[in-house]
């Protein structure tokens, strides 16, 4: 005789069904339209396909070996990390400071939040032209301003060398992205129920103390998500760099994102037709980013405070 399922087993099956139904739509699309093409791209990374035509021969690990001895690959990797660290520090330091100031001292919060988010709304590709203007050696606003106040010796070719170029790019990146992370942090702060602050306020704690001892730990989870997002997005950075320097001069300001594009599609006048190698670089990027994020998550894992 078939045994009737116990209530427990019933619940378990229902739960399993629930889990499956809820995961299915998103992961089905993800699998078909993202993972599958990505695997195809990985396959391409082992060939020497130019990207055109259908002649591609299997290359084994040649592409990967080539990548490791490619000077520009290491330059771009270094630049990506420099941007990630430098930009990350600026963005998150400022975002936390601004979030603190806005939640504690400002009445018309929406004004600042909207304003700071504005750059993120604009098409990066179009606005980088403006930034190139600003940093231009001859016509640039920055240099004119420096000369006007007598700081002539600082008026260099900003986009003309690796250090100043990456510095300029990092600043522009921070300018574009600050609002985004500020809003993430701000919305996390607003979700904290007021009741948690009441006791501290009654005890006469200062704003700063409240921020560090109460707010900060409670938004930790979302903050770490935000930083992980920054790590990934900054390593993938493309449009800002491509718009400002196209990786130049002399391939010195390439980041991973632009070097991949350069190898896949080239520039208008100098085509490279090397999709196989570009895919190899992309695989490297994914590996680096995944390691970076996973390591970061492990290092900062903390017990989440339930409230």
């Amino acid at each position: 005789m078939r045994r009737l399922k116990t209530i427990r087993e019933n619940r378990k099956t229902r739960t399993r069904l629930f889990i499956f139904t809820f995961l299915f739509p998103a992961f089905f699309l993800y699998l078909v339209f993202f993972i599958y093409p990505a695997i195809d791209a990985i396959r391409i990374s082992f060939t020497d396909w130019s990207g055109f035509g259908t002649s591609a021969s299997f290359n084994g690990l040649d592409n990967y070996a080539r990548m490791l001895s490619d000077e520009v690959f290491w330059i771009s990797l270094g630049n990506s990390f420099a941007f990630m660290l430098g930009g990350g520090i600026i963005v998150f330091a400022l975002a936390l400071v601004f979030a603190y100031l806005i939640t504690n001292y400002i009445v018309h919060q929406k004004f600042y939040l909207n304003l700071f988010y504005f750059p993120n709304l604009i098409s990066f590709a179009a606005l980088t032209i403006l930034w190139v203007f600003i940093f231009d050696g001859t016509f640039g606003v920055l240099n004119s301003a420096l000369r006007a106040v007598g700081l002539e010796k600082f008026a260099t070719a900003w986009l003309g060398s690796r250090k100043t170029g990456m510095g300029a790019i990092t600043l522009v990146g921070a300018w574009f992205y600050l609002g985004f992370y500020l809003i993430l942090i701000y919305s996390a702060i607003t979700k904290i129920p007021d009741s948690l602050f009441e006791a501290a306020i009654m005890d006469g704690a200062s704003n700063l103390k409240i921020f560090f001892k109460i707010t900060f730990p409670l938004i930790w989870e979302i903050l770490m998500t935000a930083v992980a997002l920054w790590i990934i997005n900054s390593l993938k950075l493309f449009e800002i760099v491509w718009g400002m320097t196209k990786g130049g001069p002399s391939m010195q300001t390439h980041v991973m994102g632009t070097y991949i594009y350069f190898n896949a599609f080239g520039t208008y006048h100098a085509f490279t037709f090397r999709l196989g190698y570009a895919s190899t670089l992309a695989v490297a990027l994914v590996i680096v980013a995944t390691i970076a994020v996973t390591a970061f998550r492990r290092l900062t894992a903390r017990e989440t405070y339930e409230y």
């Binding site: 190139v132 050696g137 240099n143 260099t156 070719a157 986009l159 003309g160």
Partner: peptide
């Protein structure tokens, strides 16, 4: 020209 090191097209 002066500061040509930093001049980008089309300046």
């Amino acid at each position: 020209q002066e500061n040509y090191e930093g001049a980008n097209w089309p300046s």
